Lab assay of single mutants.
Amino acid sequence: MTEYKLVVVGAGGVGKSALTIQLIQNHFVDEYDPTIEDSYRKQVVIDGETCLLDILDTAGQEEYSAMRDQYMRTGEGFLCVFAINNTKSFEDIHHYREQIKRVKDSEDVPMVLVGNKCDLPSRTVDTKQAQDLARSYGIPFIETSAKTRQGVDDAFYTLVREIRKHKEKMSKDGKKKKKKSKTKCVIM
């Protein structure tokens, strides 16, 4: 069974824990209790493949930012979460993405942009803004509501699919490099 290491990042209060708990335990946590770091595991079937999701729910508070490099190193894919009623959390996505790329030393890291709290009427981040940002990053965008469960499975499952595509691409690139290195030079 394939294991996928997913990391949920975003500013404090955007609903990272609520999304994760909704996926794992099928219930909505409405009281806000700032996370330092929590880890969850769940076995699911995605596109006919049974897999184990190892999900790291991270601290959004700035005082825990020193811990970010460590979990970013171990993560295979990242859910970059903002709240649709919090423009600052949307603007912060850029910083999370840049930090992930720096730590992973790669421009090509599996990510999904997630606009959470889409059940709320007080939207300050337009869907088109988020779609445009995701398009500019070359990553999928999904709106979710941890409260109603809308888009929750889709967000995590899409990230797994992005990781699969990335692994497939990397193995193809690896095979191309191996083929090239088999060419021999004969000096007579």
Results as ranks from 00 to 15, higher is better:
residue 63 E to S: 06
residue 67 M to L: 09
residue 102 R to F: 06
residue 76 E to T: 13
residue 83 A to N: 15
residue 74 T to I: 09
residue 125 V to Y: 10
residue 114 V to Q: 01
residue 70 Q to F: 04
residue 79 L to C: 04
residue 102 R to P: 02
residue 79 L to F: 04
residue 66 A to K: 07
residue 121 P to I: 08
residue 73 R to I: 06
residue 68 R to I: 03
residue 110 P to H: 02
residue 66 A to H: 13
residue 65 S to T: 09
residue 107 E to H: 08
residue 121 P to G: 13
residue 66 A to N: 11
residue 123 R to T: 14
residue 70 Q to P: 10
residue 101 K to R: 11
residue 66 A to D: 13
residue 75 G to K: 03
residue 117 K to I: 15
residue 121 P to Y: 10
residue 118 C to N: 09
residue 74 T to H: 11
residue 65 S to C: 06
residue 84 I to F: 14
residue 104 K to G: 07
residue 72 M to K: 07
residue 71 Y to I: 07
residue 75 G to P: 05
residue 92 D to G: 08
residue 102 R to S: 10
residue 106 S to G: 14
residue 106 S to C: 13
residue 103 V to G: 08
residue 103 V to H: 06
residue 73 R to M: 10
residue 75 G to V: 09
residue 122 S to G: 14
residue 82 F to R: 00
residue 80 C to G: 04
residue 111 M to D: 00
residue 104 K to S: 13
residue 70 Q to R: 09
residue 104 K to Q: 14
residue 73 R to K: 09
residue 72 M to D: 09
residue 125 V to I: 10
residue 111 M to S: 01
residue 119 D to G: 08
residue 83 A to V: 02
residue 70 Q to T: 09
residue 112 V to F: 03
residue 125 V to G: 13
residue 112 V to E: 00
residue 81 V to E: 05
residue 86 N to V: 02
residue 111 M to K: 02
residue 81 V to W: 00
residue 123 R to D: 14
residue 112 V to L: 05
residue 71 Y to H: 10
residue 114 V to H: 00
residue 101 K to P: 02
residue 108 D to M: 06
residue 74 T to K: 12
residue 106 S to T: 13
residue 123 R to W: 08
residue 124 T to L: 09
residue 107 E to I: 11
residue 77 G to D: 00
residue 71 Y to Q: 14
residue 117 K to N: 12
residue 65 S to R: 06
residue 114 V to R: 00
residue 82 F to K: 00
residue 118 C to V: 11
residue 112 V to R: 00
residue 66 A to E: 08
residue 104 K to T: 12
residue 72 M to W: 07
residue 64 Y to V: 03
residue 116 N to L: 15
residue 64 Y to P: 03
residue 72 M to I: 07
residue 103 V to E: 06
residue 65 S to G: 13
residue 125 V to A: 13
residue 77 G to V: 10
residue 98 E to R: 04
residue 84 I to L: 14
residue 77 G to K: 00
residue 98 E to Q: 10
residue 66 A to Q: 07
residue 119 D to W: 02
residue 83 A to L: 02
residue 67 M to S: 06
residue 121 P to W: 10
residue 104 K to P: 04
residue 101 K to Y: 04
residue 114 V to P: 00
residue 66 A to F: 13
residue 75 G to W: 06
residue 64 Y to W: 08
residue 116 N to V: 15
residue 86 N to G: 13
residue 101 K to M: 14
residue 109 V to N: 02
residue 98 E to T: 03
residue 78 F to N: 01
residue 87 T to R: 10
residue 71 Y to G: 15
residue 105 D to A: 08
residue 113 L to H: 02
residue 116 N to T: 15
residue 86 N to S: 08
residue 116 N to G: 07
residue 103 V to M: 12
residue 69 D to R: 06
residue 116 N to K: 00
residue 82 F to W: 07
residue 113 L to E: 01
residue 108 D to L: 04
residue 83 A to K: 05
residue 81 V to K: 01
residue 121 P to D: 15
residue 75 G to Q: 05
residue 72 M to F: 09
residue 116 N to A: 15
residue 83 A to W: 02
residue 73 R to N: 11
residue 81 V to P: 03
residue 63 E to G: 04
residue 117 K to A: 15
residue 75 G to C: 10
residue 122 S to Y: 08
residue 76 E to V: 15
residue 121 P to E: 15
residue 120 L to V: 15
residue 109 V to H: 03
residue 124 T to Y: 09
residue 68 R to Y: 02
residue 110 P to M: 02
residue 101 K to F: 06
residue 98 E to K: 04
residue 67 M to P: 06
residue 64 Y to C: 04
residue 111 M to L: 07
residue 124 T to G: 13
residue 80 C to K: 01
residue 118 C to Y: 09
residue 100 I to K: 01
residue 119 D to F: 03
residue 76 E to W: 14
residue 78 F to H: 01
residue 78 F to M: 03
residue 66 A to V: 10
residue 126 D to V: 07
residue 120 L to E: 13
residue 65 S to Y: 07
residue 109 V to M: 04
residue 126 D to I: 07
residue 113 L to A: 03
residue 106 S to Y: 10
residue 112 V to A: 02
residue 109 V to P: 06
residue 111 M to Y: 02
residue 70 Q to Y: 05
residue 107 E to Q: 07
residue 80 C to S: 03
residue 122 S to R: 06
residue 119 D to A: 05
residue 123 R to A: 14
residue 86 N to L: 02
residue 80 C to T: 03
residue 108 D to H: 10
residue 68 R to M: 04
residue 71 Y to T: 13
